[in-house]
Write a protein that binds this DNA or RNA. Structure first.
Lengths: 362, 362
DNA sequence: CGTTTTGCTGTAATCGATTTCAACGATAAA
DNA sequence: TTTATCGTTGAAATCGATTACAGCAAAACG
């Protein structure tokens, strides 16, 4: 590519120095306020900067200081609204620090080449925030030793058996809150439509779900899903195939819940009259869905800001292996879950009323 | 910030040159394959690169070549799912060109300071793709003369009275298609819930809507809105306040349509039985909403790829003032709009049946 | 066989900043 | 008055690449 036609030379620090009749060193000192400069010369330099319209060339500065002032955010999918809010949080912290955010998708880095690691080694980025827990193991291994490498943090998702510091929501806690809430509404048989198998979030939410069910003596079943709308639609069929249908369904994401509610309504079942549905994430639309969906709110902005702060801390203070920050989640009660006694009173009896009060231990 | 602990010096081109027993110039020539190097030396260099694990320092290269290999995307709101797909398209074109994508929100640049322009002047970015048509005029003015400035393009949105090249969907055409479709279903009174006032997209869609209505002799009314869910909810009240309710509503966005449908259902009105609702954008959820929403599909990925290609072209060939690329849109018929004769047949008569066939000219 | 061309290679300048180091004048301390 | 200290300042080295230029040998030419 030929960009020759762009040349329109900007004033350099030399020009400023010449105009202010000082050395480039002095100009630089004024610029970075690193050491003292006499008031007179400082003003002369400031005036010269004004006159010439000088702007510091970041590339030159970066070369000299050995920093790129760039942070790379690695997402599984740029098109995902969930992550875009996290990015917003990251940006909020980075920008005031003079750091720019570069976003890229993990899929553009195949496991074989070292492109990802190169981003750091090439000084293309000072640090990386990874929002994808599904990186292939060999790629994670290539990232280096968490005890040595201080420029990588995980956010939202993470990788098991790895010590890179991370920020995440309290996923298992969220699932437990959901179960407790449904229990308080009288539900004693809950089905969990999970996220994709082996996903770390899926695992955490499943664990929380089962722990709470066991503790409260709630009968539970499980349907393997995914986080998509379609997974919710598919789950509906499996729901009908269950021996004894649940009175409530806890979905691993709001999107699943929407797919489920939508598919149920096509089958003539209404939510929450016939069955309660609970989501996870509190995406914007949940509030406006019909019915509005009860869910676990994740503070996506905070996830981003905390991750960015964590990265900053690593850059300043060195590696923080094993450090995990769990952000609290919040239960949002809306209309998609109803009290079982209420619905029994106002609607025909549940078809699984026989399971009420039945306790199950694993 | 002290990043001293990060120092672990990477091999430089000097190290490679020494090891291969050639000059740095030769190494550089092998790297950039710009001019011929004898097979023997080439292999020696290649081996040395392998041995040392050398990686080119982009910052140094950027300084020397006067390019940053970075493109800045400016969004009104990073958290918006619509834009994140456009970004995906941009990325798809940029990455193979060795260009990285930096995203930033316009609101972080206030109109008074020149931060935005500085991005280009500082060599922090080689080019900028602006996805925000609501930039304050003085900021647009600060961007420079479109006939001179070859590093700025607009995408999705644009600024009136400005010659910067841009890529956009055929908004007015989409609105016209929507009207024609509703007309073909028998609707003769349509209300348009618009986007935010003065927005370029709002204006285009309004224009297309009115043109089609006038041409077909459709009675139309208009409610000022916004692109949000809430705007759809608010519009519902105004809809009821209309002298003669329409048989169909054309919304300037799918989100408006969802808010509207949701609010209508709370009022006991069902879509499309009582009123047809048409959207715009074809966001992912429209397909899964209840009912699935008829809409105008915008190819968001293509919007991104074309914008990136346009920027590349500007960078290579110089300014392209006034160049506008309009991407075709596509009508997607789903369940939220029904044939008027059908619904008249199967439901109680519309309350505005008196307006059928009534023509209005502006 | 002399001359020109071609192909390859290295030296050194360059991009635009930061920073080390030495020097300088003025002030404080002895 | 002499010496030590301090705050300022500039010259020059430096970051790590690219590239203009010149040199040189081998090949092509007349």
């Amino acid at each position: 590519m030929d960009f020759g036609h762009l040349s329109k030379k900007a004033p350099t620090i030399q020009d400023v120095a010449a105009r202010a009749e000082v050395s480039t060193a002095t100009v630089s000192r004024v610029l970075s306020q690193s050491s003292s400069v006499s008031a007179g010369k400082r003003q002369a330099v400031l005036d010269a900067i004004d006159d010439t319209g000088y702007r510091v060339n970041r590339t030159a500065r970066n070369l000299r200081t050995q920093r790129s002032h760039i942070v790379l955010a690695l997402l599984p999918d740029i098109g995902n609204a969930f992550f875009s809010q996290v990015l917003q949080g990251i940006e909020k912290v980075l920008t005031p620090q003079g750091l720019a955010l570069v976003v890229a998708e993990t899929k553009q880095f195949n496991a074989t080449d070292e492109e990802l690691v190169n981003y750091l080694q090439d000084h293309r980025a000072d640090g990386v925030i990874i929002l994808d827990g599904s990186l292939p193991p060999q790629m994670v291994a290539a990232l280096g030793d968490p005890a040595q490498e201080s420029r990588i943090v995980f956010a939202c998702e993470w990788v098991n058996n790895s010590d890179f510091p991370s920020v995440r929501s309290s996923n298992s806690d969220g699932a437990m809150q959901a179960v407790e809430y449904l229990y308080s509404l009288g539900h004693r048989h809950i089905t969990h439509v999970t996220g994709p198998p082996n996903n770390v979030l899926t695992l955490e939410r499943e664990a929380g779900f089962e722990r709470a069910c066991n503790r409260l003596g709630v009968h539970y079943t499980s349907i393997t899903g995914g986080f998509s709308l379609d997974a919710g639609v598919q789950a509906t069929k499996k729901l009908f195939a269950l021996d004894s249908p649940p009175t409530a369904v806890f979905c691993a994401s709001d999107t699943i819940a929407m797919g489920l509610i939508s598919a149920l309504s096509k089958e003539g079942l209404s939510v929450p009259a016939d069955v309660s549905v609970f989501g996870f994430d509190d995406i914007e639309l949940s509030k406006h869905f019909m019915p509005p969906i009860s869910t676990i709110h994740q503070d996506r902005i905070a996830l981003g800001t905390r991750a960015a702060c964590l990265l900053l801390r690593c850059l300043e203070q060195g590696p923080q292996p094993g450090l995990v920050e769990q952000l609290p989640v919040q239960l949002i009660a809306r209309d998609s879950c109803s009290s079982l006694t209420d619905s029994v009173a106002s609607y025909p009896p549940m078809n699984d009323i026989s399971t009420l009060g039945r306790n199950v231990t694993t």
